[in-house]
Simulated assay, not measured.
Amino acid sequence: MGVFEPLADLLLGACCPGCGAPGLGVCADCLAAVRPAPRVILDGPPPVVACLPYRAPLTSLVTAHKDRGAGWLCDLLGSWLAPGLAAVVEAAGSCPALVPLPSTPVAVRRRGADHVLDLLRAASVRCGLPREAVSPLLRRTRRVRDQVEVSHQERSGNQAGSMSAVRGEGPVVVVDDIRTTGASLDEAVRALTASGHDVLAALVLADAEHPRRWA
């Protein structure tokens, strides 16, 4: 946590970003409620690995990190992504290129950060991986609407053809924060494959589509 966030909390009234309970930082109850357990949620290809179900308090924590300026949550969220990252790297046998899903330029300007890139870098540090393992190979080629603004049925069309990748060879793992319909990940896999990369797996912090798998 940076020095300015706690000072602001003291001045403005601190509360847990997960549940709203008074206090500094994430409360003990919210921390206890989040227990990463990486698992394959889709066989693929490529297989999709998720670390957590997307439910409270994680929903509020992710929103605070992305859209409410709580950048200090990056290290905590990265620590929850790290077990899944370690698992896919171990399965690969050596460290593949780790490719974050690109935020739109509009989102980066609004948020002041590329949240998936930052999250992946935090998880990589936790896993002791070299900094150069994180490879932002993807870029947006056209404007898309924020996925939360479109229906589930419209999400695939919203993302289709919206990304391109730096040409190359070798294994890669594509990483995102939340998987809902999978439209963004599908487009990332398409762009990477079309540019010559071998996509070994997709990794997400949380799965919003298959709640029963986490019962």
Score class of each variant (00 low, 15 high):
M1E: 14
M1S: 15
M1N: 13
F4Q: 13
E5T: 15
A8W: 14
A8C: 15
L10S: 13
L10D: 09
L10P: 15
C16T: 06
C19R: 02
C19Q: 01
G20F: 00
G20M: 01
P22S: 08
G25M: 03
C27M: 10
A28P: 00
A28K: 04
D29I: 12
D29S: 15
C30Y: 09
C30H: 09
A33I: 02
A33R: 07
R35A: 11
A37T: 09
R39S: 07
V40R: 08
I41W: 04
I41F: 02
I41Q: 02
D43F: 02
G44I: 11
G44A: 12
P46E: 00
P47C: 05
V49F: 05
A50L: 09
A50I: 03
P53Y: 06
Y54T: 10
A56P: 13
P57N: 11
L61M: 05
V62I: 08
H65K: 09
K66A: 05
R68A: 00
A70H: 14
G71F: 00
L77Q: 02
W80V: 01
L81M: 02
A82V: 09
P83E: 04
G84E: 05
G84A: 04
L85A: 13
V88G: 03
E90H: 10
A91L: 02
C95G: 08
P96T: 05
A97I: 03
L98A: 12
L101V: 15
L101R: 13
P102E: 12
S103W: 00
T104Q: 10
T104R: 15
V106P: 10
R111C: 01
G112R: 11
A113C: 11
A113D: 12
V116Y: 14
L117F: 11
R121L: 05
S124T: 07
R126L: 05
R126T: 05
C127H: 08
G128W: 03
L129K: 06
P130W: 00
R131A: 15
A133C: 04
V134F: 11
S135Y: 04
L137W: 13
L137D: 06
L138N: 14
R139A: 07
R139T: 14
R140E: 08
T141W: 09
R142P: 07
R142K: 14
R143L: 15
R143D: 14
R143K: 13
V144F: 13
V144C: 14
D146E: 12
D146H: 15
D146Q: 15
D146N: 14
V148A: 15
E149H: 08
S151Y: 01
Q153F: 05
Q153T: 08
E154S: 07
Q159Y: 01
Q159M: 11
Q159C: 10
A160R: 11
G161A: 02
G161M: 09
S162H: 04
S162L: 12
S162E: 01
M163A: 07
A165P: 01
V166P: 03
R167M: 04
E169W: 10
E169G: 12
E169I: 06
V173N: 08
V173E: 01
V174A: 03
D177F: 07
T180I: 03
D186N: 13
V189N: 08
S195M: 04
G196Q: 10
V199A: 01
V199P: 02
A202K: 14
L203H: 06
L203D: 10
L203V: 10
V204D: 01
V204Y: 01
L205G: 01
A206F: 06
E209P: 09
H210N: 13
P211N: 00
P211T: 12
P211L: 03
A215P: 14
A215H: 12
